[in-house]
Write a protein that binds this DNA or RNA. Structure first.
Lengths: 348, 348
DNA sequence: TTGAAAGCGTTACCAG
DNA sequence: CTGGTAACGCTTTCAA
């Protein structure tokens, strides 16, 4: 009794037999058309089409060592911020003849490393989005296989990241222009490189402009985290709040609303990412926008190039794309409120 | 000069040599542990671990005909509604030892079919989410490989779908209780089974409750589509609007706001899906909620079972999970406004 | 330009 | 319980 496996529908051998040529000729006619006589080639191609032949990816991978599959690993698939990245990556993967597999690390470095190791044998390379891994671990993976970082930069590793320096400067200048003198930065996970860049950029720009900024956190980079963070921000009493990302900003917004605090009357809020919803929350969110779909496409292109280079044992200098960011000013930021009369010290 | 392929790091042969046993024994020790003597097994496993052995998915797939890979195809990866489905599917895929590949059909039946055909040779089965294909095409795919439908039912095909009949009843009763007498349904794509169910359920419940409902559309199931749809709804003058999904509802909401129409003062709006953002738009959206992450998990479980059945040539009756839905009442629905004094006919 | 045949890494069958 | 050895389907030398 034959084993109950699903046989690969129609194989190259079927095509070869039907076309009256050797399998090697079929292989060539289909993958290296120029290495085959025109009439042979067309004949083979027709037969293949007629029979509905589809090459077995497994067999091809076994022979070539390449799977035509790319992996995209993210800390939180449900964060709308990543939707654009996923779509961009998926489209470009398809355009370059690749399949995209997806992995969620749940904001967890260990899970991310496990995911990479689990996926590694079956893919040609990795797109690591907002990786929570250490630089050392990333370098280690990068040494073993093609890796492109998105939203992260590590020396000597190919990457695509949004310009945080310019972005944070825009934010700070916007707030200063509105008369704010004290701001709070609600920090996300310490593992977030983008978060660290944001804090660094804000601190530096703030110093330059005489804005006092205090960092609170870390908080989980979600609406729930923003709820907590918003509470803490309220207690501090700054007139401007810069959240690690829009999810947190929206959470903070919710909390302000619940507490009867007017945004932007009493406090202004700024986020990062310009995610779905940032334009229709109440008030709409002022936020730093970047083109995630484009980043996804670029990242795939870079990764595909890396895979090819590896196959040829060549090595270009790693590319480092820094994509522009743009502050989208909406209703959540406004002029700083007039400072309250200072309470006499000791009168409490 | 050796070809520049990436060799599969450490193979079963390496392990066999190092452990002093045959490759077949290694294979068994690792995949059918009970078919091997305890001490041999443990020895082999240790050696494999020490060498960092990872089976080649390609080689395994070639031999067994199974890839341990599942595909999830969706009409729009960026619709937040699908985020939960993606996450649920991804988690359960991981839990069952599978890899999840993702495909976006861009609301296009032809693209969806192409995607399925493109992915088919490399996966064990398909999760078709909100498929835009015809029943006939789905049956055709289902005959050729394991398929689980999500958000769609087709006779004899395994599926997981939210209870639209109960859901639409809840919506209609809610509106009727608020005193609405005329409503508009803003339709999505005709290819959407869920959309057709929604219209059917609403019509039927409306008739029962004496609510007049008119259908407008079809519109693209996006915020942009909702903008257009909202305009049309305004022109019609009904007091309640039921949108194909939350994306459209939010678009309609935006348009109302822009037109100075009060929601829910002048018109109430109801959506479907309870997506991210439905709770913080202005006003928050009354919408029919379903558990997408759970649906994703269930769908993967069903698909894995199908794959196993196929391998054993067994065939259970196809499962049809209908998951409960729940109306989440928020600020976008309220009492119907008092009817305006009827204008005298002919006085225009 | 084409054919024959040697892998690629696993699994599964068949002996022993 | 274990070893040897065909497959699995394709690519890629190597010859002709």
């Amino acid at each position: 009794m034959p084993s109950a496996r699903r046989p690969h529908a129609v194989t190259i051998t079927d095509v070869a037999r039907e076309a009256g040529v050797a399998v090697s000729t079929v292989s060539r006619a289909l993958t290296n058309p120029d290495r085959v006589n025109v009439v042979t080639r067309e004949h083979v191609q027709q037969v293949a089409a007629r029979l509905g032949y589809r090459a077995s990816p497994a067999a091809r991978a076994l022979g070539t060592g390449r799977t035509a599959t790319l992996a995209l690993v993210l800390p939180d698939i449900t964060n709308p911020y990543f939707a654009g990245l996923i779509r961009g990556a998926e489209r470009q993967a398809e355009a370059t003849g690749h399949i995209l597999v997806i992995g969620d690390s749940e904001e967890n470095a260990r899970a991310e490393a496990r995911m990479v190791e689990r996926l590694a044998p079956g893919v040609d390379g990795f797109l690591l989005g907002s990786s929570r891994l250490t630089d050392a671990r990333i370098l280690q993976f990068d040494a073993a296989m093609p890796v492109v970082l998105v939203n992260r930069r590590v020396p000597a590793v190919t990457s695509v990241s949004p310009d945080q320096q310019g972005g944070t400067r825009q934010i700070v200048e916007h707030l200063v222009a509105l008369g704010h003198r004290r701001a709070i930065f609600l920090a996300g996970p310490p593992e977030s490189w983008l978060g660290r860049q944001r804090w660094a950029g804000i601190s530096s720009a703030a110093k330059k402009h005489g804005l006092k900024v205090k960092r609170l956190g870390p908080y989980h980079p979600s609406v729930e985290g923003g709820l907590l963070a918003g509470e803490a921000a309220l207690a501090d009493g700054a007139t401007a709040v810069i959240a690690h990302n829009d999810l947190m900003a929206i959470g903070a917004l919710k909390r302000m609303k619940a507490r009867g605090v007017s945004v932007p009357g009493d406090v202004s809020i700024v986020g990062f990412d310009d995610i779905f919803g940032a334009d229709f929350c109440d008030p709409p969110l002022t936020t730093l926008s970047d083109r995630t779909e484009q980043a996804g496409r670029s990242a795939v292109d870079l990764l595909v190039a890396l895979v090819r280079e590896q196959a040829r044992l060549e090595h270009d200098a790693p590319a480092d794309i820094v994509a522009p960011t743009q502050l989208v000013v909406r209703g959540s930021t406004g002029p700083a409120p007039a400072p309250p009369l200072p309470t006499t010290p000791g009168s409490s």
